[in-house]
């Protein structure tokens, strides 16, 4: 967390700078099947974030040394486009994107029925086209949708959602300013059906009580996002019903 300077992030009436209540999420939209070349794809816009995910596979895993004899590998590449932030990012893989790719892959492997595809690889490509805090969560949500769109069997979807702390108050879904000047960020990947957690990261400063409040907000938001995801899939496969 940045935590620099005395930037006020809450208005006098308790609302946030963008007018949201403390437990209010930025608007989220989702659509699947947007990339013709891919086996499955999805776009998620979350506030000003835009995340696109594509799934290719399962195909035989190459090179052979990455094959697993008992299951498929889920290969995730999270990448931010050079034009996705206010300052251009140098193209290519950096330490941050490698770490996010690794833990996202592990979260998705937790729900995909990987045992059904020994020696195979399922590629998940996540491209962030616009980044305004919360891209790893939008990426996870988009990746889950793309996997579903590709017809990959899963025991649940993973919903990416984050909450954090600004001006000593726990809030849901930090935006860019809140992320830069806030005190903590807790992004999680929630399995909405079982209530389990497949993705967990956190940085900043949270007391155990504040952690619990964050999680309460996260679970509430995950429910809302899950409904939007279901609607997006139905829009393609169920005639919008």
């Amino acid at each position: 967390m940045g935590g620099y300077g005395d930037v006020k992030l809450l208005n006098d009436d308790g609302t946030r700078l963008d007018g949201r209540a403390i437990d209010e999420m930025r608007p989220l939209t989702a659509e699947v099947g947007i990339l013709p070349a891919a086996d499955g794809s999805a776009i998620v816009t979350h506030g000003l974030n835009v995340a696109i995910a594509a799934v290719y596979g399962p195909v035989e895993a190459h090179p052979r040394k990455i094959q697993r004899q008992d299951r498929a590998v889920v290969d995730v590449r999270y990448n931010m486009a050079p034009f996705s932030t206010s300052d251009r990012i140098r193209p290519g893989y950096n330490r941050r994107s490698r770490e996010i790719s690794k833990v996202t892959a592990e979260a998705l492997e937790s729900v995909v029925l990987v045992e059904r595809f020994p020696r195979a690889k399922i590629s998940v490509e996540i491209e962030i086209l616009a980044a305004e805090a919360g891209t790893r969560c939008a990426g996870i949500t988009a990746a889950s949708l793309a996997l579903a769109d590709a017809g990959i069997p899963m025991r649940d979807m993973v919903v990416g959602v984050a909450s954090g702390k600004i001006d000593n108050i726990v809030v849901l879904d930090l935006d860019k300013a809140e992320d830069n000047y806030g005190q903590a960020d807790l992004p999680v990947g929630i399995l909405p059906t079982t209530g389990e957690i497949a993705f967990l990261q956190m940085d900043g400063d949270l007391s155990p009580e504040e952690y619990n409040t964050c999680m309460e907000y996260n679970f509430k938001a995950a429910k809302e996002i899950h409904q939007i995801m279901i609607d997006a899939l139905k829009a393609k496969y169920d005639g919008g019903a």
Partner: peptide
């Protein structure tokens, strides 16, 4: 002060909030 500063879940698998409360 017992505050959380960093959390990370690694590798394939899921956990419940109750399990987390116990290990915390």
């Amino acid at each position: 002060d017992g505050h959380l500063h960093s959390l990370q879940k690694g590798l394939k698998g899921v956990f419940t909030p109750a399990e987390f409360a116990e290990i915390l």
